[in-house]
């Protein structure tokens, strides 16, 4: 009994490492890729000095962050000031437990996987609020408030989009959601929802054009203005890991997860995880592309878009999907 527990525990730890190490590696290179992509889009060179093509840049950045001094402001609430970035980073990591990168390849293949992800992403706001409040600085506090209001607003329409997909699947399990897209990816029949979901993920991760919580022209750097060295690094890693998480979620919900785009020979030879990665990278590229293209939203425009545009549209589309599925007897489960 005891040894059984020990084996289960150590196996789970190994499984967790098998997903977290690649995630962190992706995160490290996403920082590099983002700078190179932005540079290319703006006719600059980007980081090209450290190592061949600047490929060692992420490690140089990591070394810099680790070696610098962690400064805690005099008026800050010490414990919470340090808890903020840790919480952000931990939440960005634990969410990966349910992400399936191939058929049943998830650390925890749980029944309510999508709810778990939704719960974790709604907790992400705490790291930011705690950091903003504990810093004892008005810019940090304003950034935290903006961020909290923004994330709560966009979660509502994201919830409706997810329910829309769930109606077509009939299960909350992420594995089932991907398998339900064998005939057609949900981004085709639910295209408007796909667009809304992608824009909401931009707002949820606080990326441009919705990066108001850290709008440097108004509130310096927002909620992490007082952070330095690795405590700042954790926020940074958390933000990029969240970008990857949201891209994976988009991939699972709309782009058919690990499924190949066409269900015949040359495409099915490529293993599932490769397809999954390619789709995630495509979404990540979209994040960079959007950042290079659009100017930052004004705060009232952001709120208007969330509450007055996305919420009614997603609600309407939800009712439409439900009616359509009901009218044509396409609901995945028979009504009892």
């Amino acid at each position: 009994m005891f040894w059984q527990d020990v084996t289960t525990l150590s196996l789970t730890v190994l499984e967790a490492l098998a997903i977290l190490v690649p995630v962190l590696l992706c995160v490290a290179y996403a920082t590099y890729a983002e700078r190179r992509v932005l540079a290319a889009m703006q006719s600059r060179k980007g980081p090209n000095v450290v190592g061949a093509f600047g490929l060692m840049q992420p490690f140089a950045d990591a070394a810099k962050m680790l070696l610098k001094e962690t400064i805690i402001p005099a008026g800050a609430n010490r414990a919470l000031f340090l808890a903020g970035p840790m919480l952000t980073f931990i939440l960005a990591m634990v969410a990966w437990a349910v992400i399936p990168v191939n058929n049943h390849w998830a650390v925890a293949d749980i029944n309510v996987g999508i709810l778990y992800l939704f719960a974790i992403s709604s907790l992400g706001v705490y790291g930011i609020i705690i950091a903003g409040w504990a810093s004892n600085s008005k810019y940090a506090f304003l950034g935290a408030l903006r961020s909290a209001a923004q994330m709560v607003s966009y979660e509502v329409s994201m919830g409706f989009v997810i329910v829309c997909v769930l109606l077509c699947v009939g299960s909350l399990n992420l594995n089932d959601i991907v398998l339900a897209q064998k005939t057609i990816w949900f981004c085709v029949p639910l295209f408007p929802m796909f667009v809304i979901f992608f824009i909401s993920t931009l707002a949820e991760t606080g990326r441009a054009p919705f990066d108001l919580p850290e709008g440097e022209s108004e509130i310096v750097a927002g909620f992490f203005v007082e952070y330095s060295s690795m405590s700042f690094g954790l926020f940074f890693l958390g933000e990029y890991a969240n970008m990857f998480l949201m891209s994976s979620l988009t991939t699972i919900l709309f782009l058919g997860g690990w499924l190949s785009p066409l269900p015949f020979a040359p495409f099915t030879w490529v293993p599932g995880p490769i397809w999954f990665l390619l789709k995630v990278f495509l979404c990540i590229f979209m994040f960079f592309w959007v950042r290079a293209t659009f100017p930052r939203y004004r705060y009232d425009q952001l709120m208007r878009l969330g509450w007055k545009v996305f919420l009614p549209i997603s609600l309407f589309w939800l009712v439409l999907t439900a009616s359509f599925l009901f009218a044509f007897h396409l609901l995945p489960h028979k009504l009892a």
Partner: peptide, 26 residues
């Protein structure tokens, strides 16, 4: 009761408590 557990987190922790924190801080 995994559904109740996650709904508790989404609704109370993710939304209600955020508003609490807002009010108490502001």
């Amino acid at each position: 009761a995994e559904f109740l557990a996650l709904i508790l987190v989404v609704v109370y922790v993710g939304a209600v408590a955020v508003l609490f924190l807002f009010v108490v801080m502001m």
